[in-house]
Design a protein around this nucleic acid. Sequence first.
DNA 1: CGGCTATTGAGACAGAATCTCAATACGTAG
DNA 2: CTACGTATTGAGATTCTGTCTCAATAGCCG
Lengths: 163, 163
Amino acid sequence: MANVREKEQFLRFLRGRGQRVTGERLALFDEIFSQHGHIDAEELLRAMKARGLKISRATVYRNLDLLVESGLARKQRLGSRGFLYEHMHSGQQHDHLVCTGCGRVVEFVSPGIAALQAEICRAHGFLPARHTLQIAGLCNRCAEGAVSDGLGVAPATGRLVHV
Amino acid sequence: MANVREKEQFLRFLRGRGQRVTGERLALFDEIFSQHGHIDAEELLRAMKARGLKISRATVYRNLDLLVESGLARKQRLGSRGFLYEHMHSGQQHDHLVCTGCGRVVEFVSPGIAALQAEICRAHGFLPARHTLQIAGLCNRCAEGAVSDGLGVAPATGRLVHV
DNA sequence: CGGCTATTGAGACAGAATCTCAATACGTAG
DNA sequence: CTACGTATTGAGATTCTGTCTCAATAGCCG
């Protein structure tokens, strides 16, 4: 359990807003921090029930949004359907490279984007900001294989890489 | 009607795939090219019915995807719910600045992104690519007003601007 | 411990997009 | 120009996500 720091941050966040620390919130926290890549609410719910935890769909959705507000998780559209959540690696903002062939998602960090974002915002009078950058393309594996195999979609694995 | 070139491209696309040129497809083409900004499928459907055209929801959805495949339209998530479509300005790829205060969407073109995209893809062995960049922030109007007014969400207006 | 009230659970609900299948109309060949 | 085969359409049912409701439960504080 290496998320002591994050869990404390979460507790502080809750107490600071006069919100309660419930068993469900802690369980959800543990679950999402035990996951590696991106996960959607429905799957998270399934995973928790599979572990024998009793929690309802509404609670999962509600508290995922809470986790996002606390800055410990991020909510994003990556697939064509629904939102995906991911916990934050020590607050580091990163972006995604999505392979249109196999669905693999690679995370990366590129300092250049921050500069670009600042420049664009300045030009339009926009205030600070968050951004979402997704690059779609073919990963090396799919680019080679190309038409060669008719395999389905491989499970998406997320790894954080610096450019 | 200045979309002769695009319409021809669409017809060629259809014929090239052995697909039929139907009244519904042409009507949908005209409708989306008569729109300025982003529009969602449901609204497009409403607009067409308002003009007295008889077309079903399923057909709109089906053919919007077709338009996207042909490269003449783009499908994107900008709001929190559902997809928005926009026709392509002569194939020019642009990105979006979304105001979290009023929902206004500003389009911009930044050459820097293309370079960044190339660099990142090279680093990860990804092949060519499209990208989606969204920057969320407060537009100058909302940044000033801030808490001052409790007004609702203003209609999103799209204008293309170069950085 | 006891009370106040935030939170939960179960299921109803809402909105977006897809699917089904019979009816229609495009395109081609005759 | 007509007839035929088949892609496409329409209407509504269906699926899938995510939100909402409200009574029951359980944190938190005194």
